[in-house]
């Protein structure tokens, strides 16, 4: 529940539609005394691929979780494709906390892939993928099946359509999870440390799927990852996040090769050491 609704803002501040794919304005989130997002401002352009790096506990995952509505922010506003996620706009441009229906409607533009896959263990890979298209998007079973098989083909798992998650390796599970998210055709996809739970030899297959999605180009991607090589390769932009704030914001070249802040240097030093 959005408890502390922010003050209504002037209309000019909120209605530049068609601009950013994702926009955070003064987003605040704390767990008890621990402030994880400190008045965060962030713009992500449509089609942009943004990699978020930073020490653990810095709040970078919370950015994704707040955007996916898994956590509700304590204050601030978030827009997705120009529409407010947590607020409904009155005629006069004033904002009031949004109901679940509104949140669901905006949320349909967002998809998320999790560190621990979170596949539904009682369903086959194909059923995992078909569920949302049938239940949420009103597709027929046969349409959804065709879509599911197409996506499984895309992630290289067509022959595993009828396997349950328990029968798949970690890398395969994560590829199914990516296909499941793609099936809802989100404009913005969030990837929360999607390779962190994988054995090292399985990381490559997942990254290659992510690379394919990035190459197609139309999906806005926000990735939290520790794979710096991958970040350098696919990211348009790298954000160094620390203590609830963006410490540095720039191209992969700028941030990873030539960081300005000491904390960024320390963090990258620690990451590249092993």
């Amino acid at each position: 529940m959005p408890t502390n609704a922010p003050e209504p803002q002037p209309a000019s501040e909120v209605s530049d539609k068609g601009a950013a794919a994702v926009r955070f304005r003064g987003v605040h989130k704390a767990f008890g005394d621990n402030v994880v997002l400190r008045d965060l401002d962030l713009n992500v352009e449509p089609g942009e691929r943004v990699v978020i790096i930073g020490p653990s506990g810095s709040g970078k995952t919370t950015i994704l979780r707040v955007l996916m509505t898994l956590e509700r922010p304590d204050g601030g506003t978030i827009t997705v494709g120009g529409r407010h996620l947590y607020h409904e706009e009155g005629r006069d441009g004033s904002l009031r906390p949004a109901g679940e229906k509104h949140i669901r409607s905006v949320r349909s533009d967002i998809g998320m892939v999790f560190q621990h896959f979170n596949l539904f263990p009682h369903m086959s890979a194909l059923e995992n993928i078909m569920l949302a298209p049938v239940q949420v998007h009103g597709k027929s079973k046969s349409e959804a099946r065709a879509l599911g098989l197409e996506l499984l083909e895309k992630v290289g798992l067509a022959e595993h359509a009828n396997h349950t998650p328990g029968e798949l390796s970690g890398g395969q599970k994560q590829r199914v999870a990516i296909a499941r998210s793609l099936a809802t055709d989100p404009a913005v996809m969030l990837f929360d440390e999607v390779t962190s739970a994988l054995d090292p030899e399985l990381v490559g297959e997942v990254l290659s799927v992510l690379r394919d999605i990035a190459e197609e180009g139309s999906t806005t991607m926000l990735l939290v990852t520790h794979e710096m090589g991958f970040a350098r390769e696919v990211a348009d932009r790298v954000l160094m996040f620390d203590q609830g704030q963006i410490l540095e914001d720039g191209t992969p070249e700028e941030i990873l090769r030539n960081p300005q802040e000491q904390r960024t240097k320390d963090f990258l030093g620690a990451v590249f050491e092993h």
Partner: peptide, 8 residues
């Protein structure tokens, strides 16, 4: 969380 992410 997966159910929310899929907007079920």
């Amino acid at each position: 969380e997966a159910a929310i992410a899929l907007n079920l």
